[in-house]
Simulated scan of single mutants.
Amino acid sequence: MTDTNEINSNKELSIEQRDKLLRTLKDRFEKNMNRHNNLEWNKVQVRLEANPEKLWSLNEMERTGGEPDAVGYDKESNKYIFFDCSAESPKGRRSICYDREAMNFRKEHKPENNAMDMASDMGIELLTEEQYRELQKLGKFDMKTSSWVKTPEKIRKLGGAIFCDRRYDTVFVYHNGAESYYGARGFRGVLRA
């Protein structure tokens, strides 16, 4: 089974791009210490520098407006966890349906892309509903937008997909036809490095 976070080694950043991204990530890390109480930036940076393909994926998250940040460390897999932490669903990933099957289902007015393919191309995965709820414990996200989340197979087989947002100081989970897309709906990703 292929890990969706494994991508081609030719997807590497230039030294300038790498240095700029690491500065951006460090600044964000230091400004949002509530997101990673027990993490040390120096250890995170060493891990990232040793994994150029993960840096490339983080750069894709950044380039599309996700504002990725380290939000945890998984002892079992020995990996740091990054979530998109932009206030609203990333601008560069909106107006997309859920997956390729849904995109192909549309007869007209097809979106330019879909969440599952975009995430795969970026070397990341969509947040699950549980991860989305964890993100919301770190701040208030998607107050005006919504984000597709990884949909259980049972729902997807019936043509649906789920998305989340935050309204009235509450996290809501909704459903829609997987082929639907809206200007205010994108997706948030997770990367393990």
Rank of each mutant, 00 (worst) to 15 (best):
E130T: 14
G66L: 07
S57I: 02
D121A: 11
M143N: 12
K150P: 10
H36T: 10
S95L: 11
K144V: 08
R106I: 11
N8D: 15
L39R: 04
I7N: 02
D27W: 02
P111E: 00
N78I: 06
G92Q: 04
V46C: 02
E60I: 05
R47T: 08
N104C: 08
K150D: 05
L135Y: 00
C85T: 15
C85A: 13
L48Q: 01
V171M: 15
G65F: 00
Q45H: 02
R94K: 11
R167N: 01
S57A: 10
E179V: 06
K43G: 03
K43H: 11
N5I: 10
L135I: 07
E12Q: 15
M103R: 04
E130G: 10
K140N: 09
I155P: 00
P152R: 01
F187C: 09
I155S: 07
E6N: 13
I124Q: 01
M118A: 08
P90A: 07
G92A: 08
N10H: 12
N10T: 10
I155E: 12
Y181F: 15
R166I: 06
A119I: 00
M122F: 05
Y174I: 03
M103G: 02
G186A: 08
E101R: 08
K140L: 02
V46P: 06
R35K: 14
A102Y: 05
N5M: 15
E125Q: 14
F29M: 12
E125S: 09
D121M: 02
D19I: 01
W148H: 07
R185H: 03
Q131R: 13
N5Y: 15
T151E: 06
S146R: 00
D99C: 04
E76L: 11
I162T: 13
R192D: 05
L158I: 03
T4L: 14
D121Q: 09
V173W: 02
R156L: 09
G189N: 03
I81R: 09
K26P: 03
Q45F: 07
Y182I: 00
A119D: 04
D84N: 14
Q131H: 13
N37H: 08
A70T: 12
R63T: 14
T4D: 06
K75W: 11
S14N: 09
T170R: 13
D142Q: 04
F187E: 08
F105R: 08
N10I: 13
P52M: 08
E88P: 05
H36C: 14
D74T: 00
L21T: 05
P90Q: 02
K43F: 08
K11I: 07
D99F: 00
C164P: 04
Y181E: 05
C164S: 08
I96G: 06
A70N: 10
L22C: 00
S180C: 02
E60P: 00
M118F: 03
C97H: 11
D27V: 04
K110E: 00
D169W: 07
E129A: 03
I124A: 14
T64L: 10
I155G: 00
G66C: 04
V71E: 02
Y182R: 06
L158W: 04
I124C: 14
K140T: 10
I162N: 12
F105N: 09
E53A: 12
T2S: 13
G123N: 00
S9R: 14
K107G: 14
E108D: 15
K154T: 13
I15W: 05
K11Q: 14
N104Q: 10
N38V: 01
E112R: 12
G66Q: 00
L126W: 10
C85L: 07
D27A: 12
E67M: 13
L127V: 11
